[in-house]
Amino acid sequence: MNPDSFENLRLELRRGCLVLAVLAALRREQYGYTLRKTLAEHGLEIDEGTLYPLLRRLETQGLLASQWREEDKRKKRFYLLSPGGAQVLDQLLTEWRSIDNSINQVLKEKSNGIA
């Protein structure tokens, strides 16, 4: 298989998951850099070129709220999940679990079939 094809599929799969991870991580207020570090610590590396446009998009959609504040003598923009965002996160998590469950069932069927 072409490695580029795998990479494209992997990125496509990750894209939706990253939204979920960002929303989940922002149940606690954070600014961009610490959010990146938090996600990386949990095995979800995300570059700043993807994260900041995503944060802006989610904020425009009303899922996040942000404010500029000074911390360690530097102005930083802190993001927090909005009440609307919390609702959407719950719905997305339900969807996520449902998809996970469905895929597991499909995989189980396949392995039973082979056996």
């Binding site: 961009g32 850099y33 610490t34 990146r36 900041y52 802006r56 530097r74 102005k75 930083k76 923009r77």
Partner: peptide, 13 residues
């Protein structure tokens, strides 16, 4: 706004 946010990230890193 965007540059300020990028600057904060860059300097933090």
């Amino acid at each position: 706004d965007i540059v300020a946010e990028l600057a904060a990230d860059l300097y933090a890193q």
